[in-house]
């Protein structure tokens, strides 16, 4: 987000107006006024500055310190243990497993989500009448609370009685045990999140509508096929939006928690498949089921660094792949 928004940020704070120098007294008055304006400005942004200090600066530093301690919640004492928590993480096979699950999920969910969103947006973009109706229908799942989505899909995805497998059986396909069979656990969650794909779709639709029509007209005069137009005009012209979605959706996917928790980890009844143990879920268990805050803080920092590195790599790649209007010849 920060990267795509950077040009706007630079543009927004425009150059100071040249101070009209009409002798000393005016100059001093100006500086008094400027100082008063600056003070008022700080007063206005004070709520955010305070919140940033408390819930980001203090919070992150506290988390860093915590990760080197053994925190006792009942007595509020932290006993320093050095790198013990990080050593435990390195030795815990579940950490590696949950990270693997998380990466696998992100690699499956992010491209699929963007592809489906782009397909739906392209379909909608060519519709004259009824586009508003379809967009509303596609957006309804996005308004549905995750917990309701989970309670619906828990039954729709049921391997024996679920509607999804009944639908597949119309075509003679024997559907899998979605929520039980480990290889199908992650696809189940992906299906659930695809239902709420409208957020990305609306963003892509807006981008598609910003592509100049002349480009398509020129291309079709030159005899370019629809498919060729899509890959040579549409995709490059919306690449900055696609890139934005890749980054934002990746960050979200790496923190996946709600759906996995609601479908598989509400209770410890033995139906908690390892395949759904994502890093976010494991972190939650360490923090709020075992109350091992030191270990959880170390996990949080590990996740932060991982997200930072992955986003950094994506930004580097994006620099080469993304077309920003006006930035290149």
């Amino acid at each position: 987000m920060a990267v795509t928004a950077a040009p706007t940020a630079a543009a927004g704070t425009s150059a100071e107006p040249p101070a009209t120098r009409v002798g000393r007294p005016a100059g001093r008055r100006r500086s008094v006024a400027a100082r008063r304006e600056a003070l008022a400005g700080y007063a206005f942004i004070l709520p955010w500055v305070a919140g940033f200090l408390i819930f980001t600066v203090v919070s992150m530093s506290w988390s860093a310190v915590l990760s080197f301690t053994n925190y006792d919640l009942s007595t509020n004492t932290a006993e320093p243990v050095g790198f013990e928590n990080y050593r435990l993480l390195a030795e815990d096979p579940k950490v590696l497993m949950s990270l693997g699950n998380t990466f696998f999920y992100a690699l499956l969910a992010v491209p699929l989500e963007i592809a489906v969103a782009l397909a739906l947006a392209s379909l909608l973009n060519g519709v004259r009448r009824g586009a508003g109706f379809f967009r509303t229908v596609f957006y309804l799942p996005k308004m549905t609370p995750t917990v309701a989505t989970a309670s619906i899909f828990l039954l729709l995805l049921n391997g024996n009685t679920g509607a999804i497998n009944s639908f597949l059986s119309w075509f003679g396909i024997q559907g899998p045990q979605w929520l039980v069979d480990p290889p199908w656990v992650k696809p189940s969650i992906v299906i659930m999140s695809l239902w709420g794909v409208a957020g990305s779709m609306v963003i892509l639709l807006a981008a598609l509508q910003n592509v100049p029509r002349e480009l398509y007209e020129a291309a079709s005069v030159d005899g370019a096929s629809k498919l060729r137009q899509f890959f040579s005009i549409t995709v490059p012209m919306i690449s900055s939006t696609l890139f934005f979605l890749v980054i934002v959706n990746t960050i979200a996917a790496l923190q996946v928690f709600d759906q996995a928790y609601l479908l598989f980890f509400r209770d410890n009844n033995g139906n908690n498949p390892d395949a759904a143990l994502f890093f976010g879920v494991y972190l939650y268990q360490a923090a709020f089921q075992q109350f091992n805050f030191g270990l959880a803080a170390a996990m949080a920092w590990l996740l932060f660094v991982i997200i930072l590195v992955i986003t950094g790599i994506q930004l580097k790649l994006g620099d080469r792949l993304v077309y920003y209007e006006g930035s290149r010849q």
């Binding site: 940020a9 988390s63 915590l66 928690f257 959880a296 949080a300 996740l303 986003t311």
Partner: peptide
């Protein structure tokens, strides 16, 4: 702007404290 990129999971524990 940078703070928008901060993953929420990271500050969960300290915010609780």
């Amino acid at each position: 702007l940078a703070s928008m990129m901060l993953p929420g999971a990271v500050t969960l524990v300290p915010n609780y404290l």
